[in-house]
Amino acid sequence: MKARIKFSKNGSMRFIGHLDVMRYFQKAFRRADIAMSYSQGFSPHQLMSFASPLGIGLSSDAEYLDIVLEDSESVTDFVARLNAAMNDEIRVREFTVLEEESKTSMAVLAACDYLITVKPGRTSFLTEKEQRKEAARRFAARDAIEIVKKTKRSEKMVDIRENIYKLTDDRDEFEAFTGGRYGEITLDTKEYLPVLYMQLTAGSIVNIKPELVLEALCTQEEKEYDGYSYQIHRLEMYADGDAKKGEIHTLSSEIPCRLVPLSEYGRACPK
C-alpha cells in the first residue's frame, strides 16, 4: 500500500543531511513497529523515497516521504505511533494513503513555497519593512532575473524570471496567491523574523534554489548577500495537476500551472 508522509524539520535537525534523514526514518519505522515493505534480495531495504532533498541548514514545515506499507493495519494511529518514536525536531504532520497507481512525489514535484527569515542576532536590510516591501516590488516588476548557474564543468547565466511564481513580503498576499493557509509555522517566528515569501519551480526538470533568488534580490538592492544571516524555511511542496510527463508550466507557459499540495495529490478515495 502506497502512502505519503508530510513532516517538519527544525532546530538541530537542520544539520542532518538528506541521506541521514532517510536512515533516521528507516530506524524510526522499526521502533514504531510499522510494517514497511522491503525490497527483495540479501540486503533488503525499506521502500521509500523523498520528494526533494532539503539542503543542510534549511528548516521545513513540509517535507514529503513516500513509503510502501505491507498492510492496511499499519495505518491505525500512524501519525501518533511514528511521532512517539521520533525526536522533537522532526515531527510527522500528515499521513496520506495514495492510489496504487500514483507516481512518486519526486516525479510529480512542480513547485515549492519558501519563507525567508532573518536569524536572531543577525542584521539585514530586509528587517526594515519599507525596504523589503520596495525590494520585493522592484523584483516582481523585473522582466529578467539572471543568475549564475554553476555546474561541475561550467558557469552560465540563466534567466529564472519565469520560475519565480511569486515573491512578496506580505503573508496575506502570499496565502491569497497560493490558496494555502499555513497556520502555525513550525519555525519560531518570534525568534526568526519573517521577511519574504516565495514560490519557485521545483522538481527534476528545473529546480530553483531559494538561496539563489535571495542572492539575486540582494544584488538588485546592491547589498552583500550573507547566507548565514537568513534562515530559509520550506512551507509547502506541490505537484502540477495538469502537467504531463517531462513538462513544466511556468509563468510564460500558455497553460498555467495548477498546483496541488503533495499531501493531497494522488490521495486514495477517503474511506
Binding site: S12, R14, F15, I16, G17, G57, N87, K119, Y228
Partner: peptide, 16 residues
C-alpha cells in the same frame, strides 16, 4: 549555525 554549516558533518556536535 555559521560554524556548524562550515564544518564537515555537523551532526558530530549537536547531540540529541
Amino acid at each position: 549555525d555559521e560554524i556548524l554549516l562550515s564544518v564537515e558533518k555537523p551532526a558530530r556536535y549537536i547531540g540529541g
